[in-house]
């Protein structure tokens, strides 16, 4: 049976990326955040309240960790393009039985797969060590859609960085700095409230991770869908814009130069 081009490329991308380093980055760091940070801060923050619902800090943190998984999965697609250009596999694939579009789909699909697997494992760890989430059907659908859209926006961001940077060192520095900036200016670890300084609130609401966290947190932890639709729309519109930019830049990547 002949597999479609994009699927063959996706399997290839998955195989190339399923090395201990990537798996450690995908799973080790979020697990560390969830278990160590979660349990350590729980003694400082006994409960987080939202819409009159009290939850433990670890429960509160879980959607933030899921959003982090989405961002980490996005780096897989960007890094793959970087590595393929650096080691001339991009050119090699484009003289093989593939076109540029199937190559791009291969990158997005592998990020989505890593996002799904990463989130499934994080949920399993959460259930195993922490407790369980109570969610509604609509909440679950919102969460799945958000993780899907979130993976695409972060894949697009990392594709843009990968296309625009010339040196490996620059690429690594930008991605690492971005990873921490996006993480810590989002609502992944703490709630962004009216008491948060205005400038930080501004940065936080310009950060896609905040929307991914807020939507999944509301849907999965607080069982509240208030404001979820508007945040989802903002995230989707931002994704369409960023993906459009990535597509335009990708179109300008000249192979064999």
């Amino acid at each position: 049976m002949k597999l479609p081009d994009s699927l063959r490329l996706t399997i290839r991308n998955f195989k190339v990326n399923s090395d201990p380093g990537t798996i450690m980055f995908m799973l080790g760091l979020p697990t560390l955040y969830l278990l160590v940070l979660g349990f350590m801060y729980q003694s400082l923050i006994p409960a987080v309240t939202f819409n009159n619902v009290n939850v433990s800090y670890t429960d509160f943190l879980m959607p933030g960790i899921m959003a982090m998984e989405v961002m980490t999965a996005g780096t897989v697609g960007g890094s793959m393009l970087w590595s393929d250009r650096r080691f001339f596999m991009f050119e090699q694939l484009l003289v093989g039985p593939f076109n540029r579009l199937s190559y791009l789909f291969g990158l997005i699909l592998v990020s989505l797969i890593f996002s799904i697997i990463g989130n499934a494992i994080m949920l399993a760890i959460f259930y195993l060590f922490v407790g369980k989430l109570v969610f509604t059907g609509v909440g679950l659908i919102y969460s799945i859609l958000t993780l899907f859209v979130g993976t695409i926006i972060f894949t697009s961001i990392y594709l843009i960085i990968s296309i625009k940077t010339k040196k490996m060192q620059t690429y690594n520095t930008i991605t690492i700095v971005l990873f921490f900036v996006v993480d810590f200016t989002s609502s992944a670890f703490y709630p962004i409230t009216a008491k948060t300084p205005y400038s930080l609130r501004l940065i936080s609401y310009a950060n896609p991770l905040t929307y991914i966290t807020n939507i999944t947190r509301n849907a999965l932890v607080f069982s509240s869908l208030s404001g979820v639709l508007s945040e989802f729309l903002v995230l989707t519109i931002a994704t369409v814009i960023v993906f459009g930019i990535a597509l335009k830049l990708y179109d300008g990547v000249k192979p064999g130069m």
């Binding site: 190339v16 090395d19 080691f87 596999m89 090699q92 093989g96 039985p97 593939f98």
Partner: peptide, 19 residues
């Protein structure tokens, strides 16, 4: 696309997957 399916190319630059 029709050509690519029937050709093989060894580029001057080394190309490989990191595995």
């Amino acid at each position: 696309m029709d050509i690519r399916k029937r050709i093989g190319v060894v580029q001057q630059d080394l190309s490989f997957d990191l595995t």
